[in-house]
Computed example of a mutant assay.
Amino acid sequence: MSRLRVLLGLLALSVLASCGGDPKFKRYNGPEVTQILVKKEERRMYLLHNKRVLESYDISLGFAPTGDKVKEGDGRTPEGLYFIDRLNPQSRFHLSLGINYPNQRDLAEARAAGVDPGGDIFIHGRPKKFRNGIEDWTAGCIAVTDEEIEEIYAMVEVGTPIWIGK
């Protein structure tokens, strides 16, 4: 009888352990996201497997959404080819994926213009103040809902290319 109790106790602990964890960390078992495409004028972001769209999202951008990011504080979202270079589970905006801005091209352009290019560009969630998704409010980042960033965080790996265009 005591072996049965031990086995039942272990089974119960196993079930409880599998239910734990932070619910913001999702699992993804679908096709690999091979690239991200951001169309600033459309306010849309697409996760693709080769040329097939896996998911698409409405986005908010920097508070000055037109044009390429030139310097720190300009409120613009950068344009061009970048890569996801880090995942941030402790983001102020729920979860976030880092974009490798500034890259070498951005640094050279900023140097030539005598300005600081800035940095810390991410794809991240939205604080309550901006949950309506209507306005552009970031300092140059790409914002989606908290539920969407949970999905994106599970799907996208470090090294994934991201093309940000008009």
Rank of each mutant, 00 (worst) to 15 (best):
I142V: 06
K26G: 07
E79L: 09
F130Q: 11
K51F: 05
I123C: 04
G80K: 03
W163H: 12
R43H: 14
G98R: 10
V6L: 14
V115Y: 04
V53G: 02
I36P: 06
L87G: 09
Y101P: 02
T34H: 06
R43C: 11
A110N: 10
E55I: 00
A154S: 12
D58E: 06
A64F: 07
S91D: 11
E151S: 11
Q35P: 04
R105D: 14
G125I: 07
S56F: 03
E42W: 09
K40I: 05
L107Q: 15
V53R: 04
F130E: 15
C19S: 03
A108N: 03
V158W: 01
E109W: 06
V115M: 09
E147I: 00
L87M: 14
T66K: 15
D120N: 15
L48E: 08
E42F: 02
V144N: 01
L54I: 14
L11G: 05
E79W: 03
K128E: 15
L81P: 07
D116A: 06
Y46P: 03
L13W: 03
G9F: 02
L107R: 14
S60D: 13
G118P: 04
M155L: 10
A154P: 05
N88I: 05
P127V: 06
P31V: 03
Y46H: 02
G133T: 08
D116N: 12
K40C: 02
T145G: 04
K166N: 14
R76T: 12
L87Q: 13
E109I: 06
N132L: 13
R27N: 11
A12Q: 05
V33M: 08
K39T: 15
F25C: 02
E79K: 00
G165S: 15
F25E: 00
M1P: 06
D74V: 07
H49M: 08
E41H: 14
P161E: 03
A113D: 12
F93C: 00
E148H: 07
G21K: 07
L81D: 13
E147Y: 06
V158F: 01
G21A: 08
L47M: 01
G21F: 13
V70D: 01
G67Y: 04
G119L: 11
L37M: 12
G114D: 09
T34R: 01
G159I: 11
Y101D: 05
L48T: 04
E151P: 00
L47H: 05
K129D: 15
Y28A: 00
P31Y: 08
E150G: 09
S2V: 11
P78M: 08
S91C: 07
I162A: 09
Y28R: 00
D116G: 01
A113Y: 00
F122G: 04
K69V: 14
L95C: 02
R43Y: 08
S2H: 12
G80D: 09
R111E: 15
L107K: 12
N100K: 06
G140F: 04
V115P: 05
P161R: 05
W137P: 04
I162G: 10
K39E: 15
K40E: 08
S96G: 10
G140I: 02
D120R: 11
S14R: 08
N88Y: 07
I152G: 10
R52L: 10
G140Q: 01
I164K: 02
G133W: 01
R76I: 15
I164H: 07
G165A: 14
A154V: 09
A110T: 10
G165H: 13
V15W: 03
R5N: 15
G125K: 00
E135R: 12
I59L: 13
G20L: 14
V6T: 11
